[in-house]
Design a protein around this nucleic acid. Structure first.
Lengths: 343, 343
DNA sequence: AGTGTTTAGTAACGCGCGTTATCAGTCTAG
DNA sequence: CTAGACTGATAACGCGCGTTACTAAACACT
């Protein structure tokens, strides 16, 4: 049991060659000719010694960390209840593993240093980063492409030149709401997934408006509420709507928020879909097992992560992405939370 | 806009001192006397140049990566639907941030190299690791403490000397089932969260049996089923139980599985809790918003992660943990899925 | 014999930083 | 007036590796 880890120098000594040769052999450097006999001596020595290259030293020498960061601009509490995180991580890891990279997770909450994640890159901890649901107010993001740091946004922000991968929230929302208008609903409430500053919320609101317009239903501000990711905020929003407004259907731009809204409806002794039809957004795993099973828009979170990851790795290796924004297909999953309008 | 990042040498030049002095000042090394005037010159220069120390070089020099790894020994698909992952990550990140460490996520699926995560440590990528729900068959784990690599298990395995953090599943299950017996239920079905080979499932079954014994209710094998993590398997198990057995209550050792069981109950035109009382396990965020809200055992996933992280960081800094296993308190959260037995 | 050319391999530098040993100068005490 | 202690700072080494430039020998061709 060796106390100290073997270095490439140890391998070199054991194989009776120089450290340079060891490096050339183990890294399979092209364009050098070293006879197979020597190569084998080196590889045998490395195996016998249980040699594992020191990644830190490699990173220092190559100026490459072989790691990317997943940056989440949210508070720890929000992260704890983030439904998509496992899918995203899964998507990232499958891509990353194939390319022999590492995944670093970093969280940046609003009041902290705005440049925290930039430092992460400047410190050469990571070669690039994927930024999750950025706020449009985030100043740091603009600095990123000035500094020429490879970065890909998941759920991009307007007027930003960074490469981004997103679902077509607006079109998807429109489709969801059209599912309601098609069934004769004309008074349709809307609860957005997040506050106004989040571009996602704005896009989904726009889709809601598109669908209304197409069905010749006048848009009413009073039927719209902004939630804040969690069920609690959905419950509050729905309670408020039920108290002040009249409607036969609701578009709720997040399954998670819909969970809370459902409770508000139940506590008002109303039923879904008999009294109120509901279409929501995300298709989290429990949407199918809710009571009733929710009709919802599926977001391909895992594929979005994979796509973003591939783009980022390409950028790190110097390939420019073919486009600036990549839209991934959503799908309306029809279950049992809606029914045709009955006066 | 400087093309190249500033190094400590640049700071030294700008401040008119040597690189050594820069290092001593910026790292606040004790026991050296450098007058405040010089210290300020250095700090000013560093700020003006926007100096960010190169973490890789620091790691190489100090032999410390200032990073820990979260190792998951599961397939990417399982990770995508892991309910606890966000809570775990949240727990880890809150601790890690305070200590200025980084979090690396690594996945090791069964058929891959069993030593993959050991290499991670040998490569000095991380200073230590937290291993999630390890399989008891994992050979690599034993190598870990032989190699003196700091590691903490979350949800430990039997006969393993590694430090581990876990919930007392057995006691918690007993408490959950006692909640049912206390309400007069005597025919209580049981659906385990996973198959027999998982220690978790065995522990929860044992707790179920403990509670029955305490209430003088004979244990019947026919009332027990083993599910497989997902709602689908819970639905199948409950359908089978409803077809073959008679019972007024059920202990379902996972909220996720309970989702499926609930559906089976609903589709059999039965109601919770009027026809069947249910107590489940985990307290995932949606348990509170289910219909009816589920009475369930809360697993403090976030605190488990925090605890594990603190232990690991202490180990990395040379402090031995005070015990080998740490049990964290669970809590029975009483909601509305149970009611007293009525013939 | 003299001039390329290929083969097999190495010495040496650089990556950016932490840290130890050392030094020149100043102050104190004997 | 000098040995010793203190102050303020630095030169130089090491961390482990990638990589360039260079060498020494063997070989091929006029």
């Amino acid at each position: 049991m060796p106390k100290k880890r073997a270095t490439s120098q140890d391998v070199a000594n054991a194989a009776g060659v120089s450290r340079t040769t060891v490096s050339l052999v183990l890294n399979n450097v092209q364009g050098v000719n070293i006879p197979e006999s020597t190569r084998e001596r080196v590889r045998d020595a490395a195996r016998d010694l249980g040699y594992v290259p020191n990644a830190t030293a490699q990173a220092l020498a190559t100026q490459r960390a072989r790691a990317i960061g997943l940056i989440m601009t949210r508070s720890p509490e929000h992260i704890a209840s983030d439904v998509f995180l496992p899918q995203l991580i899964s998507g990232l890891l499958t891509v990353i593993k194939k390319r022999d990279f590492r995944l670093l997770i970093e969280i940046v909450d609003g009041n902290a240093d705005d440049r925290a994640y930039i430092k992460l890159a400047q410190a050469k901890h990571i070669d690039g980063m994927i930024i999750l649901t950025p706020r449009s107010t985030d100043e740091g993001i603009k600095k990123l492409d000035e500094m020429n740091i490879p970065a890909v946004l998941i759920g991009g922000i307007p007027e930003c030149r960074l490469t981004s991968v997103l679902a077509d929230d607006r079109a998807a929302s429109q489709q969801a709401v059209e599912h309601l208008t098609a069934q004769g609903h004309t008074e349709i409430a809307c609860i957005l997934n997040a506050r106004e500053i989040y571009p996602d919320a704005q896009n989904r609101l726009a889709g809601y408006q598109d669908a209304l317009k197409k069905a010749d239903i006048p848009y009413r501000d009073s039927l719209v509420r902004f939630a804040d990711f969690d069920p609690q905020s959905g419950q509050v929003a729905m309670e408020d709507l039920l108290k002040k407004e009249h409607f036969s259907a609701a578009f709720i731009a997040s399954d998670n928020v819909a969970m809370g809204a459902k409770r508000a409806i139940r506590e008002a002794n109303l039923h879904i879909p008999e009294d109120i039809s509901i279409v929501s957004f995300d298709d989290i795993p429990w949407a199918a097992y809710a009571d009733p099973p929710l009709t919802t828009v599926r977001i391909p979170a895992q594929e979005m992560a994979s796509k973003a990851c591939v783009l980022l790795l390409d950028m790190i290796h110097g390939k420019k992405p073919s486009r600036q924004t990549f839209y991934l297909k959503t799908e309306l999953v029809i279950r049992q939370s809606t029914q045709p309008y009955r006066p």
